[in-house]
């Protein structure tokens, strides 16, 4: 009986550990919603969830599978009041595109990956603008989208370093936790 409980406990711990990237991504999404007026309303804050999704798509897609990206997007839709499915579609698009270019990105230095993120951020801005125009059926000012993409690109190196620490911890964790 005790052995079964022990196995169950470690299994649960293992699942929670493996879901840590998802929790971190959700936490980053919530942080980006905090009423912090850092940019004084001039530009929007960085898209922290996109940074995390791009990072995990390159450095460990097994830690953030498509269902988790879908969950993050849907959570963002509900939390921000966006049309349901909008962020989910855009994040899955960014995730899929990054995965398709993963081989290219993996061999690059930090600057190369940063440049890759810049391309993804711009593609996301263009994609969001196109989808937004269809969804709202009217002309939308694209300036803010590109402003947000630029801010996200600026923030990427700093946050990628933090996420890299987590990524290393996930790989160097004891065998029982790695699974």
């Amino acid at each position: 009986m005790f052995e079964v409980l022990q196995i169950g406990f470690f299994w649960l711990l293992q699942q929670l550990w493996r879901a840590l990237p998802l929790f971190v991504t959700l936490a980053m999404m919530l942080v980006s919603m905090a009423p912090m007026n850092l940019m004084q309303g001039v530009v929007l804050g960085p898209d922290l969830a996109l940074i995390a999704i791009f990072f995990w798509a390159i450095h460990g897609p097994e830690f953030l599978p498509p269902w988790a990206v879908f969950a993050v997007g849907l959570a963002q839709d509900f939390a921000t009041g966006s049309p349901v499915g909008f962020c989910a579609v855009m994040y899955l698009f960014a995730y899929g595109f990054t995965l398709s270019q993963r081989v290219f990105f993996r061999g690059r230095t930090g600057v190369g990956v940063w440049l890759g993120f810049a391309i993804i951020a711009v593609l996301m801005a263009v994609g969001s603008w196109v989808l937004g125009t269809f969804v709202y059926a009217r002309w939308l000012p694209p300036g803010e989208l590109f402003g947000q993409a630029a801010v996200s690109v600026i923030f990427y190196p700093l946050l990628a370093r933090v996420l890299l620490l987590l990524r290393r911890a996930l790989t160097t964790a004891p065998e029982t936790l790695r699974g």
Partner: peptide
């Protein structure tokens, strides 16, 4: 190949699109 290797990605993308259309 990425899409072929990740049917889940395609499935969730389609679900998200359906939600978007239905939600609007």
């Amino acid at each position: 190949a990425v899409l072929a290797q990740n049917p889940a990605l395609v499935i969730f993308f389609v679900i998200a699109l359906v939600l978007l259309v239905v939600g609007r």
